Simulated assay, not measured.
Amino acid sequence: MPFLNLSHVTTYTYRQPVSFGEHRIMVRPRESYDQHLLAATLHIDPEPVELRWLQDVFGNSVAIATFDRQATRLSFDSRIHLHHAPAEIEHVDIEDYARSYPFTYSSEDMPDLLRSIERQHLDPLRQIDGWARRFLQDGRTDTLALLTEMTTAIRREFTYVPRAEKGTQTPIETLSRRKGTCRDYAMLMIEAVRALGFAARFVSGYVYDPAGSGRSSGVVGGGNTHAWVRVYLPGSGWVEFDPTNGIIGSRGLIRVAIARDIYQAVPISGTWSGFPGSFIDMDVAVVVDTAPTQIDHAAPAGTMMEEPA
C-alpha cells in the first residue's frame, strides 16, 4: 500500500480565553528515498498572525506559529498525502567489517557520529550496560542479530502502557519497571546500543499496519504520534528499529523528526498565559489510511495550504 492519507489533529481546550505564545510544530514527514511527500496542509485555529517554516539542525521541517488573539480552544490539523515504499530487513546490507560486533566506525564517519554515540543519561551502577551485554555472545556477535534481538526482547518482555502526561521515564526507570510507552522504550534502546558503542538517534513519527487497511489497529502505539530508534550501520546507513512493535526496517513507520535526544523532536510545543487552572485537556487523534494515487489539492476555507511536495 504505497499511497497513504494521514490525519493528525491536536486540540487544546481551556476554561476561559487564554493568550498563546509561540508554538513550534513538527508534523511534516521527512523526504527520503522510501517516503515522498505529495501534498500537505496545516490548518491552525485560531489562525496565527504569522506562520513561518524552517529546517532545524537535523533537517527536520519545523513550523513556527505566533498568535495575537485569545481563545478557549487551540487546534492543529495536519493532513498529509504521501507515497511510502518501506525498506525491509532483508535490504539491510552491512559492510564486511561491521557485520560482526564489536567493530569500529570508519575514521570518515566517526566525527559526525560522535554526538549520537554519547550517553545522555547517568548509569552509575551500569544497569543499562549490563542489560545491553546480555545480547552479546562469546567471541563475536552478528551485528544485525544483536540489534534485532534487543528490539524484539523489549517488545516481548516489557508491558506497553499508554501515558498521556508529558515527559519520559529514564532508561533505568523503564528497565526496572518493565513497562512504559513507545518513547520510554525508544530511549531505553538508544542508551543500550550507545553503551555498546553504536550511534543511535530518536525518531518521532507515525505507525500503521501495512498488512491491514492502513489504519494502526494491528500495531501498538497507533492513534497518536509514535517513537522508535535509528542505528547507524555501515553499508546501510541509518536503519529503523521499533522496540514497541518489534519492527526492523521502515515497514509501517513514517518518519517526521529525527534527533539526538527526545526533547529535540517534540511534535507540538508552545506556551499559553491566563488564569491558573484554565487548562482543561489535550486531545490527539492520528489516522493513517490507504489512498488513491491522485487527490484533490483544493484546501477548505481557513486552511493554510502548502504546495504539493
Results as ranks from 00 to 15, higher is better:
residue 228 W to Y: 11
residue 247 I to E: 08
residue 146 L to P: 07
residue 259 A to G: 15
residue 284 V to F: 07
residue 283 D to Q: 14
residue 113 L to T: 02
residue 52 R to L: 13
residue 28 R to S: 06
residue 259 A to V: 05
residue 293 T to M: 10
residue 301 A to N: 10
residue 3 F to A: 09
residue 58 F to L: 03
residue 276 P to M: 07
residue 216 S to K: 01
residue 7 S to M: 08
residue 34 D to P: 02
residue 122 L to M: 10
residue 230 R to V: 04
residue 147 L to P: 09
residue 107 S to L: 15
residue 36 H to W: 05
residue 301 A to P: 00
residue 238 W to G: 08
residue 249 G to S: 12
residue 20 F to R: 04
residue 135 F to Y: 13
residue 117 I to L: 05
residue 78 S to R: 01
residue 50 E to W: 05
residue 140 R to H: 14
residue 229 V to H: 05
residue 197 G to N: 02
residue 292 P to L: 09
residue 167 G to I: 07
residue 136 L to C: 11
residue 92 V to G: 00
residue 18 V to M: 09
residue 58 F to A: 11
residue 98 A to D: 05
residue 124 P to E: 11
residue 19 S to T: 11
residue 68 D to T: 09
residue 234 P to F: 05
residue 67 F to V: 07
residue 270 G to L: 08
residue 167 G to S: 10
residue 202 F to I: 02
residue 296 D to G: 02
residue 217 S to N: 15
residue 201 R to I: 01
residue 13 T to M: 06
residue 96 D to Y: 00
residue 105 Y to P: 00
residue 66 T to Q: 15
residue 187 M to R: 04
residue 168 T to C: 11
residue 268 I to K: 04
residue 128 I to R: 01
residue 211 A to D: 14
residue 137 Q to D: 14
residue 68 D to L: 05
residue 136 L to A: 11
residue 214 G to K: 00
residue 306 E to P: 00
residue 73 R to F: 05
residue 185 Y to T: 00
residue 76 F to H: 06
residue 100 S to Y: 03
residue 300 P to I: 06
residue 191 E to A: 10
